[in-house]
Design a protein around this nucleic acid. Structure first.
Lengths: 321, 321
DNA sequence: AGGCAAATTTGACTTTTGTCGAGAGCCGTG
DNA sequence: CACGGCTCTCGACAAAAGTCAAATTTGCCT
């Protein structure tokens, strides 16, 4: 009787165990299989998202600081991961929180835009599985070459896989060598459609990049460290979906940006829920720029960053009055 | 350090255990408490709905029969509980399924109308806890006297409690002795407002009652068995939220109905999602009436009932052609 | 301050669950 | 048709989680 145990058995086992509250051995006898098999099915059920175990992220929004941040920056919701944390690595804590928040925000039928970066990939990596229907995950920006393990298309696909959703990849390089070529490529029907479809998303997940030599753009060879430094002097404040933004959160007027194939900021702003996750404390300026540009309605940060943001807001208010 | 462990510790424990995947003893040492306490906190977290364990009800809608029912009766979604079931009591299976489906349908900010009956109470009783915010549970019909353990207000309150929602009870008797008094009471501002508010719900949970001596209406003394029998001869086909409906799903024109304080059928039909759950196979005619009256968009039934419904639909189609 | 009741915590114990390697059935291939 | 390779299954052991009564702490009333 070693036919494909199929979803059927997994479902039944999960149902009896989690919904009816039977013990594993009871489930086993009901289904006429060994308890060990039941245990295995249950693990699969969890891994497939047939059962969903989620913990309320309430605690992290309930924080007074989170409320004050929401008010100060006019954000829809803020989650703050305690930094003094119980965990070795605080940035993991942020990612875990972000993953939970993300899953809480996703609904059936959603269309989700996903950008790229270490943060996003970390989140994808620890995110638990879910069994959403009718969900599409679209890639927000072009691809980058090989050496990185977290390429844009991988981020997209991994998240789509975890959600049991459809992944819509972007088959174009992130950055081209001439502006003309970029322009031509953007006009290509395939690419144009995909770019146009981004504004139809109702949820976006991204982080913001720093303008320094550690940036992915540099590491991937899209820009040299020197070029990056030059851009910084010209007013570059952060990186969003592969594009350089200034302190006001607008696209910086520079050759690089004109050579990039990525979501227009206007499209991003058209997305209802824009979840931004920032792990590194060093990304203070970039985050400010992103917020200023209205690129973020939902925010997940660490306690340390939250404090800095509040201080900044306080200072700005004082100066204004 | 035995201060009020409050939600705080429960949250932290749940977070570390469920989101980060630590073991109970690891959580215990992180939090400097004993593992036994952690186990207790986790139980509380589950009971409070701080963590949510839900199993996909996919399997039960995926059924071919469910699809055919949806088509035949023009319903939005149908779930069928396998009757040959693994479980001793098939009706429990229906209730468990109904509870899962219900929880899947509820969203933050919802306003939920709940009627009354053994079925509804059973569902409330086995429904797992959730931590919804901004949810209101409103009672759809007036109250009935003492002897019953599942009074309308209890159904409402129990479900509200499980959801961590606000319960809005209905402080009026279900049925009065004269039509005039009922009319007067319905005109009372308090009552009028509540009745008017029913149409604002976006989710309703109810069952349908049979027109026989076993009906709650008889058991509670609202009607005598003889009166019920008379009504049946006059065309009564079922009971919805305390009101008698005919085979077409309309309010039966009778004195009893005029003496009832309950949601108008028009208000019920205004509710976006109307989840009807039927446990007993004997309620075939009542269910047909309810469907005919458009009182149900989402349906949970047992396999046996599903078959009868399909047969009926098939016969009707054949007759029509 | 004293003392009682309720709530919380803990250690020790039992039950339940997770895991691993061995065995059994299935299938395409040489 | 024999042969690995594959997946599924099971039994037995180890690990983890659940439970309980006793001990401790807390809050509160007199």
């Amino acid at each position: 009787m070693a036919i494909r145990p199929a979803e059927q058995l997994i479902h039944k086992a999960a149902w009896l165990y989690y919904a009816h509250g039977l013990r594993q051995d009871e489930v086993a006898s009901q289904l006429n299989i060994s308890r060990a098999s039941v245990a295995m099915y249950l693990r699969k059920a969890r891994e497939t998202g047939i059962v969903n175990i989620s913990t309320s992220t309430q605690l992290f929004t309930d924080d007074v600081m989170a409320r004050r941040l929401e008010d100060a920056f006019d954000l829809d919701a803020v989650w703050i991961a305690p930094e003094n944390g119980y965990l070795a690595d605080p940035s993991t804590d942020i990612a875990v929180l972000a993953a939970s928040v993300f899953l809480e925000l996703v609904k059936k039928g959603d269309r989700i835009g996903v950008a790229w970066g270490r943060t996003v990939y970390t989140i994808a990596d620890i995110m638990s599985y879910a069994d959403l229907q009718d969900v599409t995950v679209v890639q927000l920006c072009g691809n980058l070459g090989a050496p990185y393990s977290y390429r844009p298309d991988q981020c997209t696909m991994e998240i789509a896989r975890r959600l049991n959703a459809k992944g819509l990849n972007f088959y174009a390089p992130l950055v081209l060598s001439t502006e003309g070529l970029a322009q031509g490529l953007r006009a290509e029907p395939v690419i144009r459609d995909q770019l146009a479809g981004i504004a139809d998303c109702n949820l976006a997940l991204y982080s913001v990049g720093a303008v320094d030599a550690d940036s992915h753009l540099v590491k991937c060879g899209a820009l040299s460290a020197a070029e990056m430094e030059t851009l910084r002097r010209q007013g570059a404040a952060g990186v969003i979906a592969g594009q350089i933004i200034d302190a006001g959160g607008e696209v910086l007027d520079c050759s690089y940006n004109r050579r990039v194939i990525s979501a227009e900021l206007a499209s991003l702003r058209a997305i209802e829920k824009r979840l931004m996750v920032v792990q590194e404390d060093t990304k203070f300026e970039p985050l400010l720029a992103a917020i200023a540009g209205g690129l973020c309605t939902h925010l997940v940060v660490g306690a340390h960053m939250a404090e800095r943001l509040l201080q900044h807001a306080g200072a700005a208010t004082k100066k204004a009055s």
